[in-house]
Amino acid sequence: MWTRRHRPPAKFGDHIRYFSERTAELGNQSLSVPLPARVDQLIEFYLEDRYRISRGGGPASPAAEMAIVGPQGRPGTRLHLSGSLKVFTIHFQPGGLNALFGIAANELADQGFEAQRVIGRCADDLRDDLLQADDFAARIDAAQRWVLDRISNAKPVDIVARIARDLIESGGLSPVGKLARETGLSDRQFARRFEHQTGLTPKLFARAVRFGAALEAKSAAPKRSWTDVAYEAGYADQSHLIRDSRQLGGAPPRRFHADWSAVP
């Protein structure tokens, strides 16, 4: 599996984290990959074969050609990969989909939808432009034009969404309580608006970001011990990482990471 990423210019920064494209030639090989709890809000467009997705041990079904995918607050989702894969993805900032399209992220949590069902006919405009693009750079240009056409009519990004962005940038380590107090909102108001913007509660959001950072750190240095990875990611000790791995990934860290990172 080959993944390319591109960060957009600063004028997109309130709405788009980055663009990516994953390609693979798996032939007759079939892979099943677990997903941990994660904070991503995505539009995925399949240029070739599609992922098949199963949730909670149920049967796998093919993804929509263009799908809006919400954040995931629990384990149990698996991607089933085979054939020729080429998937172009727009990764939104927390609150980006809400600002652009008025979508409440908590209504997307733990689900994926055909994009046209959620954002209407403008999804067809994006689909047509992506189909006409010849390569990753051209698809980025098409996606940026599509987003830019909508930024002018977008509502301002919520301050709570900006705090969620700060949590991502800190690896989930920024103190949520302190950030909440800076907004001047009550705890209840902050939690409600945070979940509306991100799809997850503030605590779960921070835990998912931190667990994701630990997985990426282990992948970047496979020989490092899990104890070192846990401390670097901000866990008090390895037992706290094990707890999060079981609750957010569905298995202990060693077993989950081996399964999660099995894509070549």
Rank of each mutant, 00 (worst) to 15 (best):
P8D: 05
P9T: 05
A10V: 11
A10D: 11
K11V: 09
F12H: 05
H15T: 06
H15D: 04
I16A: 02
R17I: 06
R17F: 04
Y18W: 09
E21S: 06
R22E: 12
A24L: 00
E25V: 08
E25Q: 10
E25T: 07
L26Y: 07
N28Q: 12
S30A: 13
L31Y: 09
L31G: 05
L31C: 06
S32I: 05
S32F: 03
L35K: 12
L35H: 10
V39S: 10
D40R: 12
E44G: 04
F45Q: 01
Y46N: 15
Y46K: 13
Y46W: 14
Y46V: 11
R50C: 11
R52P: 03
I53M: 10
G57D: 08
P59F: 10
P59M: 10
P59W: 07
A60E: 12
A60Q: 08
S61Y: 13
A67D: 00
I68G: 00
I68L: 13
P71L: 03
P71F: 01
P71G: 06
G73F: 02
R74I: 06
R74D: 00
L79P: 02
L81P: 01
G83A: 06
K86S: 14
K86P: 01
V87M: 02
V87A: 01
V87H: 00
F88R: 01
H91A: 11
F92Y: 13
P94F: 05
G95R: 06
G95Y: 11
L97N: 04
A99H: 09
A99Q: 06
G102E: 07
I103Q: 07
I103G: 08
I103L: 15
A104M: 14
E107A: 14
A109D: 06
A109R: 14
Q111P: 00
E114K: 13
Q116M: 13
Q116R: 15
V118M: 15
G120F: 14
G120L: 14
